[in-house]
Each structure stands twice: as structure tokens, then as C-alpha cells.
Design a protein around this nucleic acid. Structure first.
Lengths: 174, 174
DNA sequence: TACTATGTTTAGTACAAACTAAACGTTCTA
DNA sequence: TAGAACGTTTAGTTTGTACTAAACATAGTA
């Protein structure tokens, strides 16, 4: 019975670990978040150690990452030197945080390179047919990135409404 | 001049390699796609070898992956035993293909696990307060996944309209 | 049939990333 | 001030993955 619940929890934890790995995050992150998400109250680092099976070091670094992403929050309690953590339960907020996090990444830097390259090419003469071809292709790519960018921006700004609003709108569209 | 163009191309190729790696795909994939995307005509495997610096083996496996994702297309020419490849230029189609590809992945399998777990928990009695808490949390998570799922489905179905339509709608929303 | 051209598969290597174990630095307490 | 309680940092190990080099399979050509 209680054993049964424990089994389900364990299942959930390993499942979320895999999801985490799938999206390019450390699996430990997924495990830690899973444990916190299924816990009614905040947990200390040591409790995370026992419940995840990871070592203090791993917990320490992963917890930092999760905090930076806004997926968990530190909740230090007065008169207690321990740090306590709890999971963010508003996933939409978490998604927005993650999207913003990724803005200053290799990705956007590379996109910026494309933009600059295109600007330079377009300003020069493009009587050269090969050059004209390049301009055409890069422009299509840039337009695509711009669209993605707007999409991310829009989602990032959806403060009160959740993703379900977007879903509804999209359903109306077709 | 022509050197200049070559420089730009090289820049673009390495840039796309990084983007590829960032999203969890092999960097070679990005490089190959970049080369094909900047080529006016289809390229053979050997040409890809020389232009990317990768070996035949790497090209072979990566090309298979890109084909599966719908990011490039094989274009065998009659009377020529060589395989030729060209880049897909409709990015929206490519995005849809990638989203569909990811449907049968670890991710969706894990999500399914959550759904089943929840079903089982909800059907049983939940007089146990701990159990009731679990149900509440899992339900919130499931709702979130459902919303994401609908979003993906909607995007997948956007056949004629591109993402820019979505963008426009979102801009109207706020 | 031998030889060539082409793409795939395999065995091994190199590298990056996440983790463990343990040393370390702080801060609180006796 | 000594010691304990915590969290962080570091050095080293493990692991997974993308790549190279080369053997292989297949089909076309002399």
C-alpha cells in the first residue's frame, strides 16, 4: 500500500529523469525536481541526497541550475542553517524562464551571425549570380528565425493567460 | 572576393553546426545541412566529404538522420549511381516533421507513464491525504502536458499557413 | 571475371559532460 | 576556540556519443 505509493513515486522520478535528459538537461535535474514536486513540503539538501541517491556535490550543482531556471525555489527557514528547496508549480512561468535563459546562448549568437552576414551581403552589389543565390537563401532563413523569435517573445509575454489560451486560439485557426 | 564568399560560407557552416549541437543533434548534421542549403544544386556524398571535412562514414550516417527528419532529400539522378542530396527549404515543413518524429520518443513514453499513473491513482480511493496530494500534483502536470500536446498538434496541422500566422495572432493577443 | 566506383557497417578513439569522493571554507554551537 | 554541521569546490572516474579509419557489400564496367 504505502509500498505501492513509493513504487509510483520512483517510477515518476525515473521518468522525469529521462525527460530531462531528452531535452538536454542533466538527468539529475529531472530527478531532483521530481522529488521536490512530489513532496508536500520543502526539502533539505540531505533529504534530496537520500531520496535521489545522488551525492551532495551533484545535488549542489544541479540545484543551482534548477534555481537559475526558476524550476525550484530556495526557502531558507529562520533559525535553521540548512537550505530548503521546493518545486515551482506554475509550469507556464517555468517555461517562460527557460525560454529567456536560452536567449543569451550559442543559438542566438549564431542567429545573430546570420543576420550580420546577410546585411553585409545585401549592402554590397550582387550582380554575381552566386552571391545573389546566397542572399536569397540567407534571407529565407532569417525570415524563419524572425518568425520563431516573435513566437518565443509572444509566449514569454503571456503573463496571466496560460498556454491553454494559445491552444484555444490555434484550435480556432483550423 | 570569391575568397570573401568562401569565408562567409565557412562562417555559416560552423554557426549552423553549433546550433545543431545546441538542440541536441550531432554537429555534423548542422554542417551537412549548411553546405547543402548554400548549394544551388544537389551534392553527392563525396562532395559533402570535401566541403565538410567529415569522413564518408560520418556523412553516411548523418545524411540518413537528416533524411529521416525531412531536412534534406535524396535526389538520385538517372544513369548515375551516385546519391545526390539537397536541402529542404520549407522550414515550416521541416519543423512539423521534427515534431512528429519526436512523438514516439522517450519523452512521450514518459508522459504516457504519468497519465497511466494518474488514472490508476484516481480510480482508487484517496482518503489517504498523501495520496490525495500526489493526485493533485500529477493532475496539474498532466494538464500542462495536455496543453503542450495540443499546441504541438496545432502547429503540426498548420499546413498552408506558416508560423508567421501564429506570430501575428499572438501579437494581437497582447 | 577482375576491377572500379559507391555507400554502409564496424571496431576503435577522442572528447565532453555528469557524476563520485573527498578536501575545503564557513558559520554556528558548546 | 575546538568541534560539528552544511554547502561548495575540485580532482578524478565513468559514461555516452560522435567521429575516424578501414573493412565490407553491392553493383556497374572493362
Amino acid at each position: 500500500m504505502a509500498n505501492d505509493l513509493q513504487q509510483l513515486k520512483q517510477n515518476f522520478i525515473s521518468g522525469l529523469s529521462n525527460i530531462s535528459g531528452f531535452w538536454g538537461f542533466p538527468k539529475g535535474m529531472g530527478a531532483i525536481f521530481a522529488v521536490l514536486y512530489l513532496s508536500p513540503g520543502p526539502l533539505s539538501l540531505d533529504e534530496l541526497v537520500t531520496q535521489t541517491g545522488l551525492t551532495k556535490g551533484a545535488i549542489s550543482t544541479n540545484v543551482r541550475g534548477l534555481s537559475r531556471l526558476g524550476l525550484i525555489h530556495a526557502a531558507s527557514q529562520l533559525g535553521d542553517r540548512k537550505d530548503y528547496y521546493q518545486a515551482e508549480t506554475d509550469f507556464y512561468r517555468a517555461v517562460r524562464a527557460i525560454l529567456q535563459e536560452r536567449r543569451n546562448s550559442d543559438f542566438d549568437r549564431a542567429v545573430e551571425t546570420v543576420r550580420l552576414t546577410l546585411e553585409k551581403l545585401e549592402s554590397d552589389d550582387n550582380s554575381d549570380p552566386e552571391r545573389a543565390f546566397l542572399v536569397e537563401r540567407l534571407r529565407a532563413l532569417k525570415d524563419f528565425f524572425d518568425a520563431l523569435d516573435s513566437l518565443v517573445n509572444a509566449v514569454t509575454r503571456l503573463d496571466g493567460l496560460g498556454l491553454h489560451t494559445v491552444q484555444t486560439v490555434l484550435k480556432i485557426l483550423k
